[in-house]
Amino acid sequence: MPKDRREKMEPLIHDQFAGAPSKRALAYVQSKREQGKRVVGAYCGYAPFELIRAMDAVPAVLCAFSNSTIEAAESVLPGNLCPLIKSSYGYIITDTCPFFGLSDAVVAETTCDGKKKMFELIADRKPCLSWISPRCRMKTGQSETGRK
């Protein structure tokens, strides 16, 4: 059987965070925090990070991808919700997302009903929270693509 050629390969990134991208990102955000920069957390690609950088703050992507926080979340949220929302909420109520801990504000998106309503439950945890996200490309929301 031919061998995987990867064993010949040098790793792309030489640091102590091999296999732990979230720890690498955390070290980055922490280093900025230590320089006195403020941190604004976000979950979603619709958050315009340029605005955050324009005020010399650092954007941080908040935790949303672990099965381990889902059980805690299900003490409040319905079981048949998406794992991403349950995990995010679980991280917050168990106080285990270090990025959330470092954040001075959170930019919350309203890309779906689950997220929108989950954010209502955490709105009192950080002093500041905003609501954003487009849902429709058309102002009226009435699609004409079906009638040609």
């Binding site: 005020m55 703050a57 001075d104 504000a105 002093p127 954003i132 058309m138 009226t140």
Partner: peptide, 26 residues
Amino acid sequence: MPDEDGAKRNWAEVIGRLKSFLERTF
């Protein structure tokens, strides 16, 4: 798209509000 411009204006307004929110907060 018939009302793409409207969507852009709306979304620019939301981003403007986020800017004000950040300015106020910080």
